[in-house]
Design a binder for these strands. Sequence first.
DNA 1: CCTTCCGTTAGGCTC
DNA 2: GAGCCTAGCGGAAGG
Lengths: 218, 218
Amino acid sequence: MAYEGRAASKLGKGDRILIVKSDGSVLLHRPFGYEAANWQSSGCRFEIDQSNDELLFKATRSKPVEGLAVTFTKIFEVSVLELSDEAEFVMHATEEDMKRAILSQPSIVEEGFRPIEDERPTGRSGFIDVFGMDANGNFVVVETKRKAATAEDIKQLSDYVNSIQEEMGRRPRAFIAAPSVQRSATQIMRRLGVEFRCVTPQQCRRILQRKNSLDRFS
Amino acid sequence: MAYEGRAASKLGKGDRILIVKSDGSVLLHRPFGYEAANWQSSGCRFEIDQSNDELLFKATRSKPVEGLAVTFTKIFEVSVLELSDEAEFVMHATEEDMKRAILSQPSIVEEGFRPIEDERPTGRSGFIDVFGMDANGNFVVVETKRKAATAEDIKQLSDYVNSIQEEMGRRPRAFIAAPSVQRSATQIMRRLGVEFRCVTPQQCRRILQRKNSLDRFS
DNA sequence: CCTTCCGTTAGGCTC
DNA sequence: GAGCCTAGCGGAAGG
């Protein structure tokens, strides 16, 4: 097996599973690991050559220019299948779901919190996940993270706060809504005045489920 | 198909390919796309249930706790294979290769550049890819990136420069060695005095190949 | 154990 | 079309 394109790789002889799909994608699997050892995404052109008891399979594509070549010296099994699959795939508990859950039930970050905008553009660059106001009329900037928040996340949030302060003349509060904060980030969090709000993807998923079942009644 | 764990997903009926590997990893593929629709990484426990002309396959794991369940209503083909594969996998043109190429042929970043250390630890946190000296005796900090350098990369490099300056008392030059720089990062790059040096993974790979073939003669 | 960094990251969405 | 961000990211290496 040899791949060349964005990078280049080689793999010696061994038992493999090669899957070629009708959309022009290719997978080469080893007998272990959930990830393909090599692959090509859809849109490949295929080529087959036979010589000296060897079968050479090639899959090439442009944009980016790359190719995968597999040499077979022994073939144990070949299957050709005509598959049909129109089903819809739905994923839940993503970071986007976390944002939607906060919009639908703002009290999970703080009692009395009221969202004003989502995806508010900031002066410099980037977007604020949720922008709103607390019970006392202070502006609040909320950044959601699916995993433990890093020091980098905290700094970015603090940059947003500064840019809002420049624009509004008032300093907003800053919430980091995440399952946890990395230990190494707690110090900078306190220093920059960012407040931690424990919110998990699973919790948000439950909130959205409840919301959906209520929506069905209205 | 239903997955639940770090997230949750559902997929309706359709023709699929399920691969179960002996290390306890699972792949569920649709007839299109190079990526699995669903998967479990190695170390799963399997369970099979049959009821009402349906076959239920379950793969579960702990750490993280997650599970995948697949219901079959029709089975077109089943194969059981004993595969053996001890081959070594080698990848080239990685970011590590870029660093090694600069060490082996420093002139690609600048004529007269001489590396002193690689992976030099910085005061605060992190490492410098390559640290060296230019033809005029100035210190040089080189950061390598496989893809277009981002504003974040530039800032990080500038932090290293500051930490070196504190330590050495002299301000080093800063090179970002990458195929390109994101447009949004060019301004901050100029402002922080970081210099762009065009270096690509492929170019570095060629340098290392040449080096290896020369080494074989010595 | 926690954290950081790299990947042929892929894929989606916006400007 | 290019830039930018998220991901069930996974996995490895280092502290």
